[in-house]
């Protein structure tokens, strides 16, 4: 158990470190420079060089890297090249938006997906076929397109939910839920489809196991075999896929935020990309990776709680 958690923790730290190295190298290994970004097209080469010197860009790479790491461990992500804002503070304000969408979408995908997948595996017949075909299409549809369809139907036609804007949870819990429900539903279409497939395959495999026959030979009631024993067996792969899902949904919510005009990490990264705001780019990558890694650590703990082979190892 401890060895397992230690291993997961080491991988989590390695992942964040990898994100730092990758984004840092990416920014430094290209011809562009922050001086050019700050001064814009009107800057002369001499002015740009002077600005780069001022920002410390002309120092050896490894010194800059250590310098950055030093600031990072103190929670300092630097300032924006465009408007001089603190990147850390900016991202901290945006994180709840993206995180609430990704977390809710993951949870909803899990619930809907498990119900659909288990139904398909247990019931069989035409219902299973509909779920299989439906999930095959669901996981193929582009989320931003589905989002527009939802806006068209739920906001414009039925007038049920607001199409854009964000209300903070602390400000108005119900309004908060209403403001993120459309993006959450949008991401759930694809998410639930994947979980449904995993759950259906897992459930079919579980029901074919030898120990299920042992239970049947003991006259165990069918509901107990399905929803206690087989479902528990299925839970481990489902939770593992949920972890992968969260990584995907977190990235997906970046694109969805653009559609629903939500002030989250996605908007920040899109702005940073368009403006070539290097420190902001690195900041977004690190924060996003950290969130994903922490969530996956929590799911790893859940796997450990579910799977005795992991727990007792």
């Amino acid at each position: 158990m401890l060895a397992y958690i230690g291993r997961r923790l080491a991988i989590a730290i390695a992942t964040v470190l990898a994100a730092v190295v990758i984004s840092f190298l990416l920014v430094h290994a290209t011809p562009g420079s922050p001086g050019a970004v700050v001064l814009g097209p009107s800057g002369t080469p001499a002015q740009i060089a002077a600005k780069n010197h001022e920002l410390g860009w002309d120092r050896p790479l490894w010194i800059q890297f250590l310098d950055y790491l030093g600031h990072l461990v103190r929670g300092d992500l630097g300032v924006s090249l465009i408007d001089g804002r603190s990147i850390g503070a900016d991202l901290a304000a945006r994180l709840p938006v993206t995180a609430s969408i990704a977390v809710l979408a993951t949870l909803l995908s899990g619930v809907v997906g498990i119900v659909l997948g288990v139904t398909a595996a247990v019931r069989g017949g035409w219902l299973a076929r509909i779920i299989t075909v439906g999930s095959g299409i669901g996981l193929s549809l582009p989320a931003f397109w589905v989002g527009i369809l939802f806006v068209l139907v739920l906001s414009l036609q039925l007038n049920l939910l607001p199409a854009t804007g964000y209300i903070a949870l602390s400000q108005d819990p119900l309004g908060w839920l209403g403001s993120i429900l459309l993006p959450v539903l949008t991401l759930t279409v694809g998410g639930a489809a994947i979980i449904a497939r995993t759950a259906a395959a897992g459930m079919r495999e579980a029901l074919g196991q030898e120990h299920i026959r042992t239970l049947r030979a003991l006259g165990t009631p069918t509901w107990r075999i399905r929803y206690v024993h087989a479902l528990r067996f299925t839970s481990v792969p489902v939770v593992s896929v949920l972890g992968i899902q969260f990584i995907g949904l977190f990235g997906g919510s970046v694109i969805i935020e653009n559609l629903f005009a939500l002030p989250g990490l996605g908007q920040a990264s899109q702005a940073a990309v368009s403006a070539h705001d290097f420190p902001a780019l690195i900041g977004v990558v690190i924060v996003a990776t950290a969130v994903v890694v922490v969530t996956n650590l929590l799911l790893d703990l859940m796997v450990a709680a579910l799977d005795p082979k992991v727990r007792t190892a």
């Binding site: 991988i11 977004v284 994903v292």
Partner: peptide, 23 residues
């Protein structure tokens, strides 16, 4: 396998956006 575990835990779309931001 450990290295790939790290790579799989990275948020793909955000890293791709960072790449676009640079190149």
């Amino acid at each position: 396998s450990r290295s790939t575990e790290v790579m799989l835990a990275l948020p793909l779309v955000i890293i791709l956006l960072a790449v676009i931001g640079v190149i």
